[in-house]
Nucleic acid binder design. Structure first.
Length: 882
RNA sequence: GGGCGGCUAGCUCAGCUGGUCAGAGCGCCUGGUUUACACCCAGGAGGUCGGGGGUUCGAACCCCUCGCCGCCCACCA
């Protein structure tokens, strides 16, 4: 006996354990099965599940469960990411809170040890939370980006790319984060609009013949200026090119050069050039062989290349001092307030500095070409398609990727330096030593590179490293390329594009056939969820309150949104109600003895209701199947919702009641079997989205062999759709709806049982009336429903097809109300007639519209006219009475 | 500056390749102890589909244009 309501709190953990214990999460061992694999976007190992994860992983689980039920050898491979900067930052903060200890105080080894401890304590959190959500990952294959196998993959990739010349060491400008004291990649730079100034400085010509004015938003960088550039065709300055200015404060003579980079339209048309502290200036410097003068230390303080009074000053203090100096020198020409974008570190929030350092780089341009081609050729498809444009845009303009980080948490760069600085890149120290021996002709002490790799370097290998590469494992052969990647658009560059590059380079094949880009979850007001705003919806709290199924269904139903999902608890509550509705439908079946009959063939059903619901079930199945194949998750959810609630519960079960309570045993048996079959089919179709409640019902509503999670997806024949049954049931639904509307509008008390007369019904309709009289009486709350030659006196009419229904409710009819009701109905038909007639009077319409459309309109016009005539007749009778 | 989304009932959103497509859920209003379900049932009100123009026999859906809102990329003279 089913409980009154489903208790997710109690049932979910039990059901999850049962799935896991059954081995259902592992791919089925069937050589003939089609392989289906997805790799999880690995969450930060120390992180907690947020609503975005909930969405992303719900969709993945839906696809996984769908594939599994369809019989594929299904693998959803889980794992976590070491998340270099993010994790290191968390632990550094902990240390600071504990007693102001810095990682440097601690030393590298102890610090890294400390992070591993932290990983050990908090690392299970998000994985446990994914289980709460119902994620059917194969936990036996769980991976971590820093585990041994993946580290081996990282080293192999690094060494290989280095040997191929696609990884190299280079001294160039990087985005330097002075807070973390590490280089970061272009992608980790966040431009923020801030208020600032243009300071206009006069640089006196060395020969004393005048000055040249330049403007800057970063005055301190002038300490590193090595030229002033003007445009070659800028006549104002033609005479000055080749001369020198004497750099104020510093006293260094620097040349005035001609370069296209200077824009005559901007400011004075002359621009100061600081090659060591500006990306554009760096390029100008290279063209003109200008010296690079680095004036900052890693903390972004002024270094010893600047005049003594500036050394050690923070850049912003130096800025102030430089401006004051110019003012004192009488060389400050103007201060112009401005709003401009300033680069900040996306993690630290610190203002970044272009900074000259030695770093490791990936030749992304070369690797990008196959990645571009693969998407152009459709070997990987983006869904929705338009994200391809974003992908192409970035890859076609890609810059070298700075992969070294001056951090401690991550994959140590497999490069060793000899005493003379010679670099030996090898997968391990022994390899490096061997190479060094060969190079030097003797053993030399080597020093490993201190840096670690960008976290995204290891993530880029995820689709094959997790499957065992570089070992040639059975998993790798069976599951690469993977099927679908589900991820957010915010990491198309960080992750998707780089997986494409690495996958194609090392596996010779795309890492996934399809990329589904899911939306971003926001709060009910549309604001981005963030801890500081306090508008974060914790998925675990929602699961506690509404159950995992309700949250999953909500996220699935809302996943169609192009950019963001505004989540509200009201919506979740609504879908929790949906799960309760399903539960109660199952209870109804149970109470009425609707138990699945093994081997029952719905195709054999004879009763009209049963033939009809069988066809409706087919339509729902076809709709859901197609939608899930196409990643149209919202569409699948909508179809399921409507079918379960508005078709199965609202109509079919109501239609079934008189039969189930009736005396016709054969009809009863058939209806019971059909009701149970439909319910069983619903459980299967709904399982990918609502796995818990469906599994529970699967278990409790019949004695079955296995778990629902591994039950086969239905495969229904289109012969299940029965056209005549559809028409008949639609007529019945229409009739009952009309009766209900009329009763409500005329305020007929629910207890009243008026008789219904049907006038002008043709033989087909009379047959329907006879077949469904029981239902009509019950659902319409009527005393009788009989054909008649004319409407009884004091009845309210309505139109149902070719016939006119007349509800004998004389005692409830209010003349004014009935007149108003009829007028409104008549007006509706009149408007319809008007519109349709106008259309049909249009020669162009007749000539150009498809015959089908024209015919539809003709029928519509005829029906509307007919209905209007009958209602008008009813109205005159009414008036005659009055 | 370049690109991409969005603008449809009070709210959140569906409306695929133009022809009952003007819809759903929530909210609101009216009525309901119909033994599966009040986490429910029946019924109802409410929108000139952001503005303007165009294409078409016909446009929420296609084109142009304008206006807001949001995001991404580039830009620290």
């Amino acid at each position: 006996m089913l409980d009154k309501v489903f208790d997710p709190q109690a049932a979910e953990p039990r059901l999850y354990d049962a799935w896991e214990a059954s081995g259902a999460f592992a791919p089925r061992d069937d050589a003939a099965a089609r392989p289906f694999c997805m790799v999880i976007p690995p969450p930060n190992v120390t992180g907690a599940l947020h609503i975005g994860h909930a969405l992303n992983n719900t969709l993945q689980d839906v696809l996984t469960r769908f594939a599994r039920m369809r019989g594929d050898a299904t693998l959803w491979l889980p794992g976590t990411d070491h998340a270099g900067i993010a994790t290191q930052m968390v632990v550094e903060r902990q240390l600071a809170a504990e007693g102001n200890i810095s990682r440097r105080d601690m030393g590298r080894e102890a610090f890294v040890e400390r992070i591993w401890d932290w990983k050990a304590t908090s690392g299970g959190t998000i994985v446990r939370q994914l289980r709460r959500l119902g994620a059917s990952c194969d936990w036996s294959r769980e991976r971590f980006t820093l585990d041994e196998g993946l580290s081996a993959a990282v080293r192999r990739v690094f060494v290989t790319l280095h040997r191929q010349g696609l990884i190299y060491r280079d001294k160039r400008l990087v985005n330097w984060d002075p807070q973390f004291q590490t280089a970061i990649s272009d992608l980790e730079v966040e431009q923020r609009e801030v208020d600032g100034c243009y300071w206009h400085f006069a640089y006196p010509l060395e020969d004393g013949s005048g000055e040249i004015v330049v403007a800057t938003t970063r005055p301190e960088t002038m300490l590193g200026d090595t030229a002033v550039a003007v445009h070659p065709s800028d006549e104002r300055y033609t005479a000055l090119v080749g001369k020198c200015v004497r750099l104020p404060i510093v006293g260094r003579p620097i040349p005035i050069i001609a370069d296209d980079y200077a824009d005559p339209e901007k400011g004075s048309g002359a621009v100061k050039i600081t090659p060591a502290h500006d990306f554009n200036d760096f390029r100008v410097g290279q063209r003109h062989h200008l010296p690079l003068i680095n004036i900052l230390d890693p903390f972004a303080r002024i270094n010893d290349n600047a005049p003594p009074e500036y050394r050690g000053l923070d850049r912003f203090a130096a800025r102030k001092k430089v401006v004051e100096a110019f003012e004192a020198l009488g060389l400050l020409r103007a201060i112009e307030p401005t709003r401009h974008a300033v680069p900040h570190g996306d993690r630290s929030g610190a203002v970044l500095e272009p900074y000259l350092t030695d770093q490791w780089w990936v030749d992304a341009k070369t690797l990008a070409q196959p990645a571009i081609r693969a998407v152009e050729e459709g070997r990987t498809l983006f869904e929705p398609r338009n994200w391809e444009k974003t992908y192409f845009e970035w890859l076609r303009n890609i810059e070298p990727w700075c992969i070294s980080r001056q951090l401690w948490w991550g994959h140590r760069i497999p490069a060793w330096y000899g005493p003379d600085g010679h670099i030996f890149v090898a997968e391990d120290e022994a390899g490096a030593c061997a190479a060094a021996r060969e190079h030097y002709g003797r053993d030399e002490a080597l020093r490993q590179d201190e840096d670690v790799l960008d976290t995204w370097f290891s993530s880029a290998l995820w689709p094959f490293s997790t499957l065992g590469w570089p070992e040639q494992t059975p998993d790798l052969h069976q599951f690469y390329p993977t099927d679908t990647l589900v991820t957010g658009f915010d990491i198309i560059f960080f992750w998707v594009a780089r997986m494409m590059m690495m996958g194609l380079h090392f596996m010779g094949e795309v890492p996934f056939r399809r990329v589904f880009i899911n939306a971003l979850v926001r709060d009910a007001q549309g604001a981005k969820m963030s801890k500081s705003k306090g508008n974060v919806l914790d998925p675990l709290g929602l699961i506690d309150t509404y159950g995992a199924d309700a949250l999953r269904f909500t996220l699935t139903a809302m996943s169609g949104q192009a950019r963001d999902i505004k989540l509200s608890t009201q919506r979740i509550e609504g879908y929790r109600n949906f799960s309760t509705k399903l539960w109660n439908a199952a209870r109804f079946c149970e109470i009425n003895g609707c138990v699945a009959v093994p081997g029952f063939d719905p195709g054999s059903a004879t009763a009209t209701v049963n033939r009809w619901i069988r066809g409706e079930t087919f339509k729902a199945w076809a709709h859901v199947t197609k939608s899930l194949e196409d990643c149209a998750f919202d569409d699948a959810a909508g179809a399921l919702y409507r079918f379960v609630w508005n078709v199965y519960c609202d109509w079919f079960l109501e239609f079934a009641k008189p039969i189930l309570n009736g005396a016709d045993e054969a009809a009863k048996a058939e209806t019971r079997a059909v009701a149970a079959w439909v319910l069983e089919t619903i459980l299967k179709l709904l399982h990918p989205v609502m796995p818990f409640v469906t599994e529970e019902l699967w278990d409790k509503t019949a004695a079955r062999d296995g778990l629902l999670i591994t039950a086969p997806w239905p495969d229904l024949p289109d012969g299940y759709v029965d056209g005549p049954a559809d028409v008949e049931m639609n007529w019945l639904v229409g009739l009952i709806t009309e009766v209900r509307q009329l009763r409500a509008e005329m305020s007929v008390p629910p207890s009243a049982r008026p008789p219904l007369a049907l006038i002008g019904a043709d033989p087909v309709t009379l047959g329907r009336l006879a077949r469904h009289r029981d239902l009509i009486l019950t659902l319409g709350r009527l005393a009788s429903a009989e054909p008649a030659a004319a409407p009884p006196a004091g009845s309210a009419p309505f139109v149902i097809g070719e016939a006119t229904g007349a509800l004998a409710i004389a005692e409830f009819i209010d003349l004014a109300a009935e007149r108003a009701r009829l007028d409104k109905e008549i007006a509706g038909h009149a408007a319809d007639i008007d519109r349709t007639a106008k259309k049909l009077a249009n020669a162009d319409f007749i000539a150009r519209a498809p015959e089908e459309v024209v015919e539809d309109n003709r029928e519509r016009l005829a029906e509307a006219r007919n209905a209007k005539t009958r209602l008008e007749a009813a109205k005159s009778r009414l008036e005659a009475l009055a």
